[in-house]
Amino acid sequence: MTAAMTTERPVTQAADVLTIRDLKAYYINDLFGVRREVRAVDGISLTVRRNEIYGIAGESSSGKTSLIKTIAGAIRPPMRVVDGSVSFDFGGKHIDVYAEPGKMKAARWQNLSYIMQGSMSVLNPVRRIKHAFNNFAFRHMGLDRAAFRARVESHLQKLGLDPNVLEAFPHQLSGGMRQRVTIALATVCEPEFIIADEPTTALDVLVQQDVLGLIKEVQERLGSSVVFVTHDMSVHAAITDRLAIMYAGRLAEEAPTQAMFDTPQHPYTAHLIASLPRIGDISTRKSLGGKPPSLANPPSGCRFHPRCPIAIDRCSKEVPDMLPSAIGGRVACFRAGEVAVK
């Protein structure tokens, strides 16, 4: 661990489970000799501790899914890790994801599980739900068939699902039930580390609250770490302990969630919080001017500068470092703390 990464954290913190250092992962296409590079993850460092829910927010195409695919070791060409490292520490068992790919494979189900974006549709439409459990989880649990079935059934019950869903086909379940099933599938092996990409985005408000409660409950019971990705800041408010904001493949800010909502330090964070609609308020919400940056050809300097309301000359020339912030987090901005919400 480098000195730069340890200084900003108080000493009494729980152990780090995930450490990412200066990670760069690009989509690299060679089309007729023309190389196109999409720099979806471009120099990210962060750590996730035991027993916390770490949120990742950011606008569409900022690279959230790309980042967590890289964390889960779930990347395929044209995506490539071009620099940096991702490592886990599962109670002393150390795994460097890209230095020792074999080790990661074994850990994938035992220690870590990954609920993918749109994963409700990964349930095979022509097979009963029980096949998904048999295929994904059976091998990793070292139980005989009967004990395995009993474990799955009791797990489903804990999540408020009737064990009869095992005999159902996916289309017979509502969207909310399918999402519960995917969460059950992801947690039945009691993983220490859960990665969830937009797990509640397609759900209506009532079911969304149930599923969020469920994730919180499972996390607290298992004492696991959860990396929770969504663009929805209200969901982050409800469930995360710490929150990172991504912009154009980089982190803009990271802080304890409450502190970030109270006093955001980065102008982009301030914008995200101010743009949330509230019932009872019809004052026009400004959406950000300009366009989301192209990751094939990102802006120079601070990537937010073309859309930043308080940009100065320096912003287009120099890249701001991610430095400790006034609210106990980190922020990458030359004028951190200068924009208030509203």
Partner: peptide, 26 residues
């Protein structure tokens, strides 16, 4: 009224409380 109450308030304390309330009710 239930639908309106299920709208998560954009504030960490209030939103976390809303989730706990609904889990407890369930």
């Amino acid at each position: 009224i239930a639908l309106k109450n299920a709208v998560l308030p954009p504030d960490p304390k209030a939103a976390a409380a809303a989730i706990r309330l609904r889990s407890a009710a369930a």
